Amino acid sequence: MFEKYYNKLEPRDQRPPRLSEVKITGAEIAQLRSRRKSKSRMGMERVMGLSVDQKFELVQKELEDAKDEIRHMRANAERDLQHHEAIIEEAEIRWTEVQREVHEFEKDILKTISKKKGSILATQKVMKYIEDMNRRRDNMKDKLRLKNVSLKVQRKKLLLQLRQQLKIENAQFLETIEARNQELIQMKLASGNTLQILNAYKDRAKALALNRQLRKQLSEFRAPQVMMYIREKIRNGDLEKTIRVWERKVEIAEMSLKGYRKAWNKMKTTNEQLQATSGPGK
């Protein structure tokens, strides 16, 4: 039983070699044939040589396979049982109908024929029975046809009602969607207003923070001492005088530069005139 699972667990290098993998003589083949008789005993000895965990794994796999096989067999048996029960139920219904027809035929026809053999009445009775059967069959066909027509009309009515109901529900859904869209627009507008208000509050908070900072600086401000103020004032006056002196020097330098440019241009013009007058004489 555990041979196939043991072969899965046993390493390949520890398995016995196959006949196709080993070259043996005729005597060895005879010995192998004699060993086949004790195959089951050897299998049990090999299983006995396994550890407890390996034995447990073998038993667990065998148990799972047995459970799967039982599950499949049970499912197949239940399916076959349902099929046969349906066949038996259909046969019983058909047998009941046949028995009823046979009983009616025997009651209406056979008893009359047995009492009055060869009479015209028996023949008429048979014909009447057949006509009644045909009439009942025709009536059943008419009933089924009328029922079919009625079902078709009912189906059309139901389809029409369903379409009308779908149109109404569609209109209601459209109204609901439009209302939701309006609510969404209102929410977007409210969100925009909220953002504007939030930005205004942020600007106000920044202004308040700046105001607090300026107030803090103003509260921490201390006026300088009188002598320091006088020294700074004198230094400022000296710097202003120095600036005015340098500005005057710049103005004088600009005026001198203008005079130099004017003299240079005059000398340049005179030189050009001299060159022009001396040129033809040469």
Rank of each mutant, 00 (worst) to 15 (best):
Q273M: 12
R261M: 04
D108P: 11
R180Q: 07
Q60V: 00
T269W: 02
T25Y: 05
A122Y: 06
L32F: 05
K39Y: 10
L218Q: 13
K141W: 06
K282G: 05
I70F: 06
A209H: 05
K156P: 04
P16N: 03
E97H: 09
K117Q: 13
K4M: 07
L63Y: 14
R222N: 02
S256I: 00
I197N: 13
Y6E: 02
E89K: 12
L162Q: 11
L174I: 10
E220W: 07
I168V: 10
M48Y: 10
R136V: 01
L50Y: 02
E220G: 07
M44T: 12
S51I: 08
N211G: 02
K39V: 04
I29Q: 10
Q124R: 15
R235P: 00
L208E: 05
E64A: 11
E90G: 06
L208I: 11
H83D: 08
A223E: 02
W264Y: 15
A122I: 02
E169W: 03
P11C: 03
L274S: 06
N211S: 12
N170Q: 06
E101N: 07
G49E: 06
K107M: 05
T25H: 02
E57I: 00
F105E: 02
K282Q: 03
L208Q: 05
D65N: 07
K141R: 15
M187C: 05
D108T: 01
